[in-house]
């Protein structure tokens, strides 16, 4: 197993559903025909049903239920609906077949927890909450590539982790010669994600660059740490990765401010995970 084999496997992955590609592309566009996109989303019934369940979850606190994508766009805005549709589609796009002993639900719980923390923290970094949510959801996708394309080698990664009580990245490095951030970065490029999201996926473990903590990459690095620290994945041997002090201080929150961030992250996580993981 070597790094170039892994990168070749990424290039062989199927494309995303066309509507999701279109939605991701609109993140960097100014004028978007939201009506036409809403009509396209509506053609996928499963995606529509899931998106509406999320839009009606208690986090958005709508006074009455939305029953169509068009209505959801009108009430919650196109940005929120784009995030929810992308989330629903991505969480359904990796098959668990062949990797029975990998804990997919725990993987998605961590992804949703990171997305929730990123969305809650985004206003404090003057970043778009919806882009932050999507980047958080995607930050560990490289792990799914490794698990689903190389299930046997991935068992060695898990054995290495158990033996050394270490996080996944160094164990993946030991077995594959690269970690999920590098694989995820290749996948994000293959799937033509917006540049800021590609960078956040690639850099979410790079915590030694205090020069620019309030970029999307810094935000996702902190959101990832918070998701581990709030113990939301429900994994027995969970561990919190190290957090650089400049990144923590860049958010300039007091104790009460952090407690509001923790509480809002937990609430958004519970709302989202009920719909996204079923």
């Amino acid at each position: 197993m070597n790094a170039s084999e892994v990168i070749r496997a990424v290039r062989d992955l199927p494309s995303l559903p066309a509507v999701v590609n279109e939605l991701l592309a609109t993140m960097e566009q100014e004028d978007v025909d939201t009506q036409a996109l809403a009509a396209k989303i509506t053609r996928d019934q499963a995606l529509t049903a899931k998106t509406l369940r999320l839009a009606n979850s208690s986090f958005y606190g709508l006074p009455s239920k939305v029953t169509s994508i068009q209505q959801a766009v009108a009430v919650l805005g196109f940005h929120s609906i784009r995030t929810l549709v992308t989330a629903c589609s991505l969480t359904g796009s990796f098959s668990a077949a062949g990797s029975r002993d990998f804990d997919f639900p725990a993987f998605w719980r961590h992804a949703i927890a990171t997305a929730a923390a990123a969305r809650v923290l985004a206003p404090h970094a003057r970043l778009n909450p919806e882009t932050a949510f999507t980047a958080g959801l995607l930050h560990d996708l490289g792990t799914l590539v490794l698990v689903t394309r190389f299930p046997d080698a991935y068992r060695q990664v898990r054995a290495h982790q158990r033996q050394h009580d270490c996080p996944s990245a160094p164990a993946q490095q030991a077995v594959f010669g690269l970690d999920h951030a590098a694989v995820g970065s290749a996948l994000a490029a293959h799937w033509k994600f917006p540049a800021a999201i590609q960078a956040a996926v690639a850099e979410h473990h790079r915590i030694d660059d205090p020069g620019k903590p309030l970029t999307l990459s810094g935000l996702i690095a902190l959101a990832n740490v918070l998701a581990h620290a709030l113990d939301l994945a429900g994994v027995e041997n969970e561990q919190v990765p190290p957090l650089a002090e400049p990144l923590w201080r860049a958010f300039a929150l007091d104790d009460a401010g952090w407690e509001r961030v923790f509480g809002a992250t937990e609430q958004l996580f519970h709302d989202m995970s009920q719909t996204l993981t079923t």
Partner: peptide, 9 residues
């Protein structure tokens, strides 16, 4: 060791 980690904790 991590300064940020201890503040978060």
């Amino acid at each position: 060791e991590g300064g940020g980690s201890q503040l978060l904790l």
